[in-house]
């Protein structure tokens, strides 16, 4: 397939770098201010070198990438809340041109799922978004393979929050201390709000709800509580009783809920560090646990490229 990648952050850059291994070609790459377009295929190393050295990927306008001769648009711009722009417009343009879209950006399917599905219905292109939930973990494709047999999903979908909670529990350290440590390690961003207030996990759960119930949930439909300023004493009391606290997202009985929960220390959900895990309840096969890396450039890119491989050929 011929890919146009919009967004040249960790995920977009990794898609460009790894596409060749999957026998795909990159014909366009755009960041927020520039683009490189070449119908005969871009050289991954040189375009990424240029981005690193000059901050620009090429001399073209970002809009040119959207008009390039591609089969699949990989949308990897940062997730935005509310109208999910500019990701949503990028997706719409690709579908209007009857091209496929693979999302790493959660916005369009978390905030405007109904519109995405109706644009897709009018297009010869399809939309896949495995990378938006649980990074490298094949969550959505597993749900799809189970053919409507998944009745509920829960899990740990934010590595930053999980890192903070597991460090607090393991070292008996306070929230502020561990947050600062996570920021030093690059596990938490300078502004950690999105992760520690539960927003990121909630967006992923909203996407799961949209897929499980084929409905249009958005962030405001989720009941969200974060882990910010949780005292160490709460984790100590939990530990005395063989339990720990984890930021759990749940989709069940039509409701979406994210919040800190007590989990037995020996439970499969008690993953440590930045690991993510998703637990699926199925009608005939009980419970499935899938865990792995929920974030990171190459990890998320592997989910993007797996989606590209699932797409049908465009007539």
């Amino acid at each position: 397939m011929r890919l146009a990648v919009v967004g040249a952050g960790a995920v977009g850059a990794s898609v460009v770098e790894l596409a060749g291994e999957y026998d795909h070609e990159i014909v366009a790459l755009a960041d927020s201010s520039s683009a490189a377009v070449d119908d005969s295929g871009l050289d991954a190393a040189s375009v990424l070198d240029r981005k690193r050295d000059s901050g620009r990927v090429g001399d073209a306008d970002p809009a040119d990438a959207l008009e390039a001769d591609y089969d699949v648009l990989v949308e990897a711009t940062p997730t935005t809340l509310g109208d999910a722009e500019p990701g949503f417009s990028h997706l719409r343009r690709a579908l209007e041109r009857d091209r496929h879209v693979v999302l790493a950006n959660k916005g369009p399917v978390a905030e405007r799922y109904g519109e995405v599905r109706s644009l897709e219905a009018d297009s010869r292109g399809s939309v896949l978004f495995e990378a938006t939930v649980g990074g490298a973990i094949p969550v959505l494709s597993t749900i799809d393979d189970l053919n409507g047999q998944v009745t509920a999903a829960r899990g740990i979908l934010n590595g930053t929050a999980n890192f903070i909670l597991s460090r607090m529990a393991a070292e008996g350290l306070g929230y502020e201390h561990v947050l600062a440590e996570a920021q030093d390690l690059g596990v938490a961003e300078a502004d950690p709000t999105f992760d520690v207030e539960g927003t990121d996990a909630a967006l992923k759960c909203v996407i799961l709800a949209n897929v499980l119930y084929d409905d249009s949930y958005a962030l405001e439909d989720a009941d969200v509580e974060g882990i910010a300023d949780l005292p160490g004493s709460a984790l100590e009391l939990a530990a005395e009783d063989g339990r720990t606290v984890r930021l759990i997202g749940e989709v069940a009985d039509g409701a979406v809920r994210v919040g800190p929960r007590l989990v037995p220390e020996t439970d499969p959900l008690s993953v440590s560090g930045t690991q993510n895990i998703v637990q699926l309840e199925t009608s005939h096969a009980g419970r499935l646990n899938i865990s792995g890396r929920g974030a990171g450039g190459p990890e998320t890119a592997s989910a993007v490229l797996a989606d590209v491989g699932r797409l049908p050929p465009l007539e």
Binding site: A152, D253, A255, L262, D267
Partner: peptide, 11 residues
């Protein structure tokens, strides 16, 4: 703040 347990089939 209430940190609830995860219960079977809970939402």
């Amino acid at each position: 703040r209430v940190i609830e347990p995860l219960t079977e089939g809970s939402a």
